[in-house]
Nucleic acid binder design. Structure first.
Length: 415
DNA sequence: TCTGGGGTCCTAGGACCC
DNA sequence: TCTGGGGTCCTAGGACCC
């Protein structure tokens, strides 16, 4: 059996940890740039605030109903997430961290009653970390997701441990709420008369499912039948692509400013590439305007391939600057820029060209830079291409809480 | 004024091979 | 009159997730 443990309103719950006065009050957390809502407490949901809703539209509403608003504080959230995950490891030797606020636990060797086990997990996380979680337990990942979905509604631990219980549960899940069914597929499902997860499980034409919803769709159906198709894995696999991008706090038109932001993103992405001991053979960059602007949407992407894979920030920046020259256009109101590193390979086994020699000096320099930046903080040592003043494209964060758990300067102060 | 960021997987179709 | 058959590899784009 597999448990899915998922933190309730995770980002909001993290904020509440250090603001106990916000208990039972509506709280929301905004995306980067204070753009839109990405986490809501139950109270905020009840007020009708929507996930993904733009903040500027609900600003006065929040003031009126005393909704507490936070900018996102990811260093806090990832730190709390790490604590939750390591606590979960006490309950199973196989914990798959599925996202910042969710994990699958293998409970196949669990001797106790599963419901009791689920309650124990809830209590422990609440007591040791202070974050409320929901627990759903079932035979496959997809069914554990269903169990968790129902657990959230009742605040009980839900265990789906026999056919009848599973069927009853699946009838309660509208097809659009099923894990793996998104905006497009729910339309197709409904056209086939599939309105609930139960209908999907019992749809009897597998070939048709495969052709309409691809291999993944068929796997999902089998998972609902109790046949495991998505296995649990502990190891966090290396990333196959690494992205860094950000919307600007304001519109940017200057090529020099765009170059600085691209250099900045390349620095971040390359550092994360080196962290997982990888190299990349492709760099792509993009510049685009706002989706919502008055002028027509404009977006340009370009990519550069390297015959020998690299992880050298300075080399990548050099290439990135050329790429900006290629796609930049004057009089465009740029609102977002970003880079991606692709075709990622391990740095201990890759193909050199016949006449290529690794640049060991650069390697030493990158190592040193990473060491210093890990110790002293990001961008302590950086390429001057990133510039010294990024106020023009810096993001907006008007409601950011202190980094209580990751910065000495932000430590919680007691009288 | 103002709408996020970072990922994975799958498939069709093009390019190529003999 | 009339022009084969069987493959592999790669990529862009679309779907999904949080």
């Amino acid at each position: 059996m597999i448990a899915l443990v998922d933190c309730n309103s995770f980002f909001c719950s993290c904020e509440r940890l250090f603001r106990p006065d916000l208990k039972n009050k509506p709280v929301v957390v905004l995306s980067n740039n204070d753009g839109c809502i990405i986490s809501r407490t139950q109270e905020a949901k009840q007020l009708g605030l929507k996930m993904g809703g733009p903040y500027f539209e609900i600003k006065s509403f929040c003031r009126k109903y005393d909704v507490h608003v936070f900018s996102s504080n990811f260093s806090l959230y990832t730190n709390i997430s790490d604590r939750v995950m390591s606590t979960l490891e006490k309950f199973s030797s196989l914990v798959e961290i599925y996202s910042v606020d969710e994990a699958f636990l293998d409970l196949s060797t669990c001797q106790n009653d599963l419901k009791v086990m689920g309650k124990k997990i809830k209590q422990t996380i609440d007591q040791e970390i202070g974050i409320p979680v929901g627990v759903g337990i079932a035979k496959t990942k997809a069914l554990a997701k269903v169990a968790n979905y129902l657990a959230k509604k009742s605040d009980e631990v839900v265990v789906l441990d026999n056919e009848e219980v599973v069927n009853d549960a699946l009838k309660l899940v509208p097809i659009e709420d099923l894990w793996g069914v998104g905006r497009q597929n729910q339309i197709k499902m409904k056209a086939l008369g599939i309105m609930t997860a139960y209908d999907f499980k019992n749809y009897d034409n597998e070939k048709h499912i495969q052709s309409v919803f691809t291999k993944t769709g068929l796997q999902l159906k089998k998972e609902l039948e109790g046949i495991s198709c998505f296995s649990l894995s502990k190891a966090t696999p290396k990333k196959k692509s690494i992205l860094s991008s950000r919307s600007f706090g304001q519109v940017v038109t200057s090529k020099e400013e765009l170059k600085k932001s691209i250099a900045y993103h390349i620095s971040l992405a390359a550092q994360s590439l080196r962290k997982q001991n990888s190299l990349c053979s492709q760099l792509y960059i993009f510049l685009r305007t706002s989706y919502y602007g008055k002028t027509e949407f404009h977006s340009k992407t370009t990519q550069i391939n390297f015959s020998v894979p690299v992880d050298d920030t300075l080399f990548l920046i050099e290439q990135g600057m050329k790429a900006v020259d290629k796609i930049y256009q004057q009089n465009i109101l740029y609102k977002k820029a970003g880079v991606g590193l692709e075709k990622i390979v391990d740095n201990d086994s890759y193909q050199l060209g016949l006449f290529d020699r690794p640049n060991n000096e650069r390697k030493t320099l990158m190592n040193l830079m990473d060491q210093i930046n890990n110790r002293e903080g990001k961008f302590t040592l950086k390429s001057m291409a990133c510039g010294v003043d990024n106020s023009l494209w810096k993001m907006k964060q008007d409601f950011k809480s202190p980094r209580y758990t990751t910065s000495w300067n932000d430590l919680y102060k007691l009288k």
